[in-house]
Design a protein around this nucleic acid. Structure first.
Length: 593
RNA sequence: GGAGUCUUAGCUCAAUUGGUUAGAGCGCCGCCCUGUCACGGCGGAGGUUGCGGGUUCGAGCCCCGUAGACUCCGCCA
């Protein structure tokens, strides 16, 4: 036995009893005579006091304790000397006076201090096992556990079965780049790690499971970001005989349970809903952050017959003119305005027109082109006041929305509009387009995935090949401008599925080779079904108030997909390659480390 | 593939216009210290300023290249 209590357990009421504690030496305060040790385990701190007059041997040993040594102490729980209680610690009324000390393991000099913020992330990742001792990390992993537990409890309660699906699965052409696993038994063939258990969960519905969920690891071989890792976790859900409202209700209940369990907050349900078209039109984003205003204001009516060519021209060409009002941002710096202009160009605008409202004056090179009526319309539509910055975009509708949407978010960052906010703004974005045209590949691609069901009323448009007009029964759930997850009602009829594949340019031969099992399954009585997948890492990130999902994963990879601790990916033995029938081309240097 | 920011002691950072021996706090080592809780005091060790090249009488600082980290774009059904 190493301990009878943890380090956040002993209280006044325990005074006089004998206790054993084990943990790490958090801090040593050595007064030459009396020595204080703050002993830490994952639950908290307990002060341990060594007094030379009571036990000289122990005091001598304690004198040599260092940061992060692992020790076990046994002794008497005592009241602290009156006046020396520490109100900051839950255990601050007591201290342990040991009659035994066992040093279980010594620690080297630390690679970085555990109590400091701001250590280089690559150093932290190199010593992740050490970094995890920081209370912040322990807290994050605990919250993650609470989220997964609440998820399991909630979905179990609703009758969902947790079912595992294969990690060694099949490569599909659509979507993200696959991680491939070579087959040894069938040389020259490859498994793929699942980008999502999409097909399996649909086949479980065909299998009559009706209600499935999984805390599923997913793998995508794409470039990394603060909120994107090559392997990540989804709360994957699928149900039979459902319509979107069933999924909305379920997801809202699930997220409410998760936020209740982890943050002890009640989130209001149902969530507001916006169509994709509304979201783009008003916020210039399919995952709008509505915690701040700056709505995109349509100015087509104002400038339809304007003499200002830039705006009039865009409207005559069937495009749009919109503006946002950045309140109290007329004082932006030259650098900030340059950045915003560069951003506008990056997203396809020719430029960015703006008006600063300062000293009662509209300062802008374009104001002189406006008629009095136009100026008045701007003033009332955009609620223009002293100190405002009005930014305009005039172009194709998509470009105008995208540009102003991006600028809107960047300005919110510059003005720190959401800093310190504990607002939780959930919403649904619905009615996504089913397909998007890729100029690069000169073909139509599925926006969500190829199994997504079109809206019933749009199926005629699908058959008429008006792909741009076809909306999907697909939906995303968004929190504070972050896409938490998305899903759809699926296609369960082989004929409709074949039509979609055809529209996506998948030949019948390829359909059979790649999706034959799905099409066959749909012929054996597939029930109507649909579901959703939620990004667990992102949910936990938001719950923890972190800005990177790496902070809520125990062992994440860095920006280039390298595990700095274990040094993967790594070279492998020639024999392993031979077993797999793989020969390296030698195009890459032998070691990337 | 592209853009930006960064890289100085174990950690976090400083170093005026290019100017003497590159400093501080924390940590580490030694000594002192019996009620601290970020204990305190005295002393000490610790640096190829990421790496390579250039300009200069002289480079942590300027220029070129390169490596790495992070953020973003592309990409992510």
């Amino acid at each position: 036995m190493y301990r009878t209590h943890h380090c956040n357990e002993l209280r006044k009421s325990d005074i006089g009893r004998t206790a054993m504690l084990a943990g790490w030496v958090h801090v040593r305060r050595d007064h030459g005579g009396v020595i204080f040790i703050d002993l830490r385990d994952r639950e908290g701190l307990t002060q341990v006091v060594f007094r030379p007059e009571e036990n000289a041997d122990l005091a001598t040993q304690a004198h040599h304790l260092r940061h992060e040594d692992v020790i076990e102490v046994e002794g008497k729980v005592s009241a602290r000397v009156p006046g020396t209680e520490n109100a900051k610690l839950p255990t601050g009324d007591i201290e342990l006076v040991p009659n035994q000390l066992r040093i279980l393991n010594r620690a080297d000099v630390l690679p970085f201090p555990l109590d400091a913020e701001g250590t280089n992330e690559d150093l932290r990742l190199s010593y992740r096992y050490f970094d995890l001792r920081r209370p912040q990390m322990t807290r994050n992993l605990r919250l993650r556990h609470k989220v997964t537990k609440a998820t399991r409890d909630f979905l179990d309660e609703k009758g969902f079965l947790e079912i595992e699906t294969p990690i060694l699965s099949k490569s599909t052409p659509e979507g993200a780049r696959d991680f491939l696993v070579p087959s040894r038994l069938i040389k020259g063939k490859f498994y793929a790690l699942p980008q999502a258990p999409q097909q399996y969960k649909q086949l479980l519905m065909v299998g009559g499971i009706e209600k499935y969920f999984q805390i599923a690891k997913c793998f995508r071989d794409e470039d990394l970001r603060a909120d994107r890792q090559p392997e990540f976790t989804q709360i994957d859900i699928e149900a039979s005989f459902v319509v979107p409202d069933d999924i909305f209700l379920l997801t809202e209940g699930l997220l409410a349970a998760v936020f209740r369990a982890s943050r002890n907050v009640e989130i209001p349900t149902p969530f507001p809903r916006l169509t994709y078209a509304q979201a783009m039109d008003e916020f210039g984003s399919d995952k709008p952050d509505r915690r701040f205003g700056m709505h995109l204001t349509d100015l087509a009516d104002t400038f339809r017959s304007s003499s200002f060519k830039m705006f009039r021209g865009a409207l005559d060409a069937g495009g749009a003119v919109k503006a946002i009002n950045a309140k109290n941002f007329a004082s932006l710096t030259i650098g900030q305005s340059d950045e915003l202009t560069a951003m506008a160009k990056q997203y396809g605008a020719k430029g960015l027109a703006f008006i600063k409202v300062e000293s009662g004056e509209w300062k802008s090179p374009i104001v002189k082109f406006f008629s009095e009526a136009e100026t008045e319309a701007l003033r009332s539509k955009l609620h223009v006041e002293e100190g405002d910055l009005i930014l305009f975009a005039a172009d194709k509708w998509e470009v105008v929305c995208e540009v102003l949407g991006r600028i809107r978010c960047r300005i919110a960052e510059m003005q720190q509009l959401t800093v310190g906010s504990d607002q939780l703004d959930f919403l649904w974005v619905t009615d996504f387009p089913l397909m998007a045209f890729s100029a690069e590949e000169n073909k139509w691609n599925a926006v969500h995935h190829p199994f997504t069901r079109p809206k019933d009323e749009d199926i005629a448009k699908l058959e008429a090949q008006e792909f741009r007009e076809v909306r999907a029964q697909a939906y995303d759930v968004v929190l504070n401008g972050v896409e938490l997850g998305g899903g759809s009602i699926r296609i369960h009829e082989p004929d409709l599925q074949a039509k979609i594949f055809a529209a996506l340019g998948v030949s019948e031969e390829d359909q059979q080779a790649m999706f034959g099992h799905m099409l066959r399954a749909f012929r054996l009585g597939a029930p109507p079904h649909g579901g959703i997948a939620l990004g667990l890492d992102r949910i936990v990130m938001l719950i923890c108030g972190e800005e990177s999902i790496r902070e809520v994963m125990a062992f994440p990879k860095n920006n280039r997909g390298i595990d700095l601790m274990s040094h993967s990916p790594s070279d492998v033995d020639q024999r392993q390659l031979r077993d797999l029938g793989i020969k390296l081309t030698g195009e890459q240097p032998p070691s990337a480390n």
